[in-house]
Design a protein around this nucleic acid. Structure first.
Lengths: 124, 124
DNA sequence: CTTATAATTAAACAAATGCTTAATTGTTGA
DNA sequence: TCAACAATTAAGCATTTGTTTAATTATAAG
C-alpha cells in the first residue's frame, strides 16, 4: 500500500522483491561517476595517476595525446574529485586523490581488468 | 632501457613507478563497461534488474520512460552482457545475469551508493 | 624586460548518444 | 483470421562529448 501499482501484476509484491529504490538523485550521482571512467582516454589517465604522479607533458606523452586534450580530461577528473594537481615550478603535477571513492574506483578497475581483460601483466 | 623516454625526467624510473601499463585494448574494454552504467536511466534499469525480474512495460513504468526508450537501453545492457531476457507469453522478462562481471558491478554500485549518496535506505 | 617552456582556456567541429514518434514484428485469445 | 497487446526496430532530431587548432595565462631563466 502506498505504492504505485504496476501495469502488470505478476504476483510478486513490488517492495518485497527489491526493497525501496534509491532516489533518482542517487542514480544521477552514480552515473556521473561512472561516466568519468567511461572514456578510454580518461580511464587511462586516471589509472596512470593511481600509479604515479606526473606533469601534463609526461601524461600527454604516455597516453599519446596533445596537452590541451589531456588538460581537458584532467579538469574533469579533478572536478569529479578523483585527482588533484599541484604546481611545482613551471609544471603542474597530478595524482589520484586518496579517498574512499577514488580507492574504490581504482580497485574496481583492477578487479574488472582481471575478470574481463585476458592480459598477463608485466613480464616477470 | 626499451622504454620510451619521457619528455621530462623527474628522477623516477617509469617502470618502477607504475609497473607496466595494461594494453590500450584493455582500457577500451573497461571504458565501454563503465559507459554502460554512465547513464542514469540505464543505471536505474540495471539496478532494478539486479533486484527483480520484470517485463518491459513494468520496467518502463518504474523508471518513467516510454517502452521504446527502455527497449533501447535493454538492448545495450544485454549486448554488454549484463542482463538477459526471456519471453514468456506476450511478455519478455529481463533480469541481471549471474556472472562475475555483473556481480562485481552490482556490488560496486551498492558500495558507491553507501559512500557517495547520503540516503538512509528503505524505512524500517 | 624579454624569451622560452608549461599549462590552460576558447572556439569550432565531427561523432556519438538518448529520446521521440511512427512503423513493424511477435504472441495470445476471441 | 482478426483484434488487442507487448516488444522491438527505424528514422529523425537535439544534445552532449572529445578532439583539434589557436590564443592566453603562468612561471622560470637569461
Amino acid at each position: 500500500m502506498g505504492y504505485p501499482s504496476l501495469p502488470h501484476d505478476h504476483g510478486e509484491a513490488f517492495e518485497k522483491e527489491m526493497g525501496a529504490m534509491p532516489p533518482l538523485e542517487s542514480f544521477g550521482t552514480l552515473a556521473s561517476i561512472f561516466k568519468e571512467l567511461g572514456d578510454e582516454s580518461r580511464l587511462r589517465i586516471f589509472w596512470l595517476l593511481c600509479h604515479c604522479e606526473e606533469c601534463v607533458i609526461n601524461i600527454s606523452s604516455m597516453v599519446g595525446m596533445t596537452s590541451p586534450a589531456v588538460s581537458h580530461h584532467l579538469r574533469q577528473l579533478k572536478s569529479g574529485g578523483l585527482i588533484t594537481g599541484m604546481r611545482r615550478g613551471k609544471e603542474v603535477y597530478y595524482k589520484a586523490v586518496d579517498t574512499q571513492k577514488a580507492r574504490l574506483l581504482h580497485s574496481m578497475i583492477e578487479g574488472m581488468m582481471e575478470i574481463e581483460c585476458p592480459w598477463e601483466g608485466p613480464v616477470r
